[in-house]
């Protein structure tokens, strides 16, 4: 059985705002029957202020689908439509003290039901090209469709690439066979052969060796900069570039990251917004760390700080 938080259980056993809503002026029906989850969200919106006066739901689904629906109605009541549309699926999950990775799609369904209900209220037609694949990476909740699309869009060829782009496979590594299968499929369509990580890492290493100028043995101290071939300024610029590149992703989830300091191999950053206290913060950090290592060509430690370090 799933490890549901107390709050998920509480909202499942005692759902808030369940049942039909008399006088609803916005209705969103979403879900996937094959997957076993379907949700009708009904909202009553004040036409003058666009404030959601009341919200109710009906859900065909598992414990977390019902709890997510309940949480959604609680979150959006009293908000304006524009405010409500800012609610991310991560907020729904956080409201419930987290959901198991396999169940994150329940919170996505809640957000989509809201979009559909608002569109319905505004007389628009809501359509979604949402497609969900089988969950491949259980550590980071990445499904097959996302992996396949990312491989195609970026011409990825190795499991390592897939981990860098999607995080899939960056945790326990049990899903590497599944990722290889997807890579195989996509590469076969292009008439290419899949190359395992091992082969590529070795090739990279050999290439790197030919490029590195070994310092003379007599030199007593070799600075890190000399090994990676970058000046301190170049290093910091590269670090900044990586951090800037990941910020939009985090901001989309209502979080952010800020570079604080670089001391030798330690890169200090501060996570803010929704990243603070997020259960996946360490995952985010390890992803950023991997990108920094790739960019700098040296091993660094990415360390989160809660306050600015006093010099």
């Amino acid at each position: 059985m799933w490890n549901y938080s107390e709050k998920v259980q509480e909202h499942f056993f005692n759902p808030r705002n369940a049942g039909e809503l008399e006088g609803a002026n916005g209705i969103g029906d979403v879900g996937s029957l094959s997957c076993g989850d379907a949700l009708r969200l009904m909202i009553h919106v004040d036409p003058d202020t666009e404030v959601i006066l009341d919200a109710r739901f009906q859900t065909f689904g598992c414990g977390s689908a019902i709890a997510s629906s309940s949480a959604l109605t609680e979150i959006i009541k009293g908000k304006t439509l524009d405010e409500a549309l800012q609610v991310s699926n991560q907020e729904i999950a956080d409201f419930l003290d987290g959901l198991p990775p396999e169940k994150m799609h329940c919170s996505v369904m809640g957000r989509e039901a809201l979009q559909a209900a608002v569109a319905n209220y505004r007389g628009e037609v809501w359509s979604d090209d949402h497609e969900e694949g089988a969950l491949v990476c259980k550590c980071f909740a990445v499904d097959a469709v996302l992996i396949e699309e990312t491989i195609r869009a970026n011409n990825l060829t190795t499991v390592q690439d897939v981990s860098f782009y999607t995080k899939a496979g960056g945790g326990c590594s049990a899903c590497h066979e599944g990722i290889e299968d997807i890579l195989n499929k996509v590469l076969a369509e292009k008439g290419q052969a899949f190359q395992s990580n091992v082969a590529r890492v070795q090739a990279d290493a050999e290439q790197a060796l030919t490029q590195i100028e070994m310092p003379p043995l007599s030199t007593p101290q070799v600075t890190e900069a000399a090994v990676s071939g970058l000046s301190t300024l170049q290093r910091i610029r590269k670090i900044e570039a990586v951090i800037e590149a990941v910020r939009p992703q985090l901001q989309r989830d209502k979080g952010d990251i800020e570079l604080i300091d670089v001391v030798g191999k330690a890169v200090y950053v501060r996570l803010t917004g929704a990243c603070t206290g997020c259960q996946l913060a360490s995952v985010t950090l390890s992803g950023v760390q991997q990108q920094l290592i790739e960019s700098l060509g040296e091993f660094i430690h990415l360390l989160p700080v809660t306050k600015s370090p006093t010099a």
């Binding site: 039909e20 029906d29 879900g31 029957l33 379907a38 949700l39 009708r40 989509e112 949402h130």
Partner: peptide, 16 residues
């Protein structure tokens, strides 16, 4: 489900 019976009009969610 409605009033102790399956709903008459089909519930047909998007991307079902």
């Amino acid at each position: 489900w409605k009033n102790n019976a399956p709903v008459q009009e089909a519930f047909d969610p998007a991307y079902a």
